[in-house]
Design a protein around this nucleic acid. Structure first.
Lengths: 243, 243
DNA sequence: TAGTGGTCTAGACCACCCT
DNA sequence: GGGTGGTCTAGACCACTAC
């Protein structure tokens, strides 16, 4: 039996089909079996297959044609379609074919600025944990990322904190908090100061600057992030399906 | 009867609920009626209501809590959650509370560069239609956008072409082509030359540069776009829901 | 315990594309 | 005509939260 109960069937179907696409069991550019065939083969309902395929279509991984069939997007079957560029830098770096390493620049506490206090909805001057990390792609500095979080959210105030964790896992591990959504503002800026030197940029070289706020389901702001991309090493690439 | 047949029920439900949220029939931050109640009120199945709500949740417009209810995200109920920043500039400008106007800088034909020819999958030196437009927010230049398309796709070779159309409508109108998906690469650059002067930037001011390729369902590249954002006027803001 | 959203099924009918 | 994806329904059961 390919599909078994306790785990969500939808997840199993998604993993299985993604794996088959990546391993080219279904040839790039070729056609997938029909929804009914897949449902029958896996012993699940057509509706379940459809929710998985709908998600793939939204990522651009497959192209669906009414009255014809479902085709694998050969242009995207190799690249990362998860918008990881805005949430998991290690994964983004590895998806681009590099070895990802994380260097922790600093983990320290300090007081919130008025602006930080407002964005995090904490009293002015509250204590914040400040985390600065450098992400390297094959040992070349690619992204400099800083995060701040109210120490009031931490379940343990004493370290050590694992600087290798993706930020959403950091929140899970140390705060038992789940991210519901995030807002990203993207700007351009000139290399200068710490980001410039850590990313080994020439003076006044343009950099991408991304400011993020993470919220949980109660709509409470959990975390702020400011990241600097050296886009000459790493593309910030977004895929969007229409409709 | 609130919901009627010929038009897709899902679309009607989506429009209706979006309208109610925007008009604060359901108060910001408050709770929506349950799925069953909505289904009953509108005379549709719960599954249909759920597909609409799932989409809203992905846009971050609502927050869903199992065992509790569905809540309106007051933080986002006012702002545009459609990622229009990467596909419909007029809409983006208006969503930010400005008056949007489009100034056509040029519409002309020229030969494809080798790189353009490769990206559009046309023979080197093919004839391209080149379109340059400036988007103004309350008369302040905000986005300079250029597009190139193979003239081979045009159903009518002679103009005039309507420069006020969003680019996907341009493709529908003049090429009878539908966009299936697009790939956007985001970079930072320094203001210089035409983009710099049209956007009224100081020399060497940093700008966002977005390079886009649009494809149809047959995975054929239709159109290239290069856009320059003056992000001091307009934020490039992306919302992403987790999961 | 009652009510909510989350998962999953089985099946109907439609619109569309191919040959 | 036969097969495909697109839309929609009715209903079952589960996991979770509030009370």
């Amino acid at each position: 039996m390919l599909i078994q109960r306790p785990i969500r069937i939808e997840d199993q179907v998604r993993s299985l089909l993604r794996q088959r696409i990546q391993e080219k069991v279904y040839p790039p550019g070729g056609r997938l079996p029909s929804e009914s065939e897949l449902a029958q083969e896996l012993g699940v309902s057509r509706a379940t297959v459809r929710t998985v395929l709908a998600r793939f279509a939204k990522e651009g991984l497959i192209l669906r044609k009414q009255g014809d069939g479902t085709y694998i997007n050969e242009r995207l079957h190799a690249i990362d379609t998860h918008q990881s560029g805005l949430r998991d830098f290690s994964r983004l770096i590895e998806a681009n074919g590099y070895q990802a390493t994380i260097r922790t620049i600093s983990i320290e506490t300090r007081q919130a600025s008025p602006q930080e206090a407002e964005m995090l909805a904490v009293p002015a001057g509250s204590e914040l944990l400040f985390l600065a990390r450098l992400f390297l792609a094959d040992d070349r500095p690619a992204i400099f990322a800083t995060n701040v979080i109210s120490t009031g959210l931490l379940k343990r105030l004493d370290g050590p904190f694992d600087g290798q964790l993706p930020i959403h896992q950091f929140l899970q591990t140390y705060c038992q908090e789940e991210i519901a959504y995030l807002i990203s503002d993207i700007e351009a800026t000139l290399a200068a100061g710490e980001p410039g030197s850590l990313l080994a940029c020439r003076e006044n070289e343009p950099l991408l600057k991304i400011m993020e706020t993470f919220y949980n389901k109660e709509n409470r702001p959990l975390l702020l992030g400011i990241s600097y991309y050296n886009y000459t090493i790493l593309k910030l690439r977004l895929i969007q399906a229409w409709g």
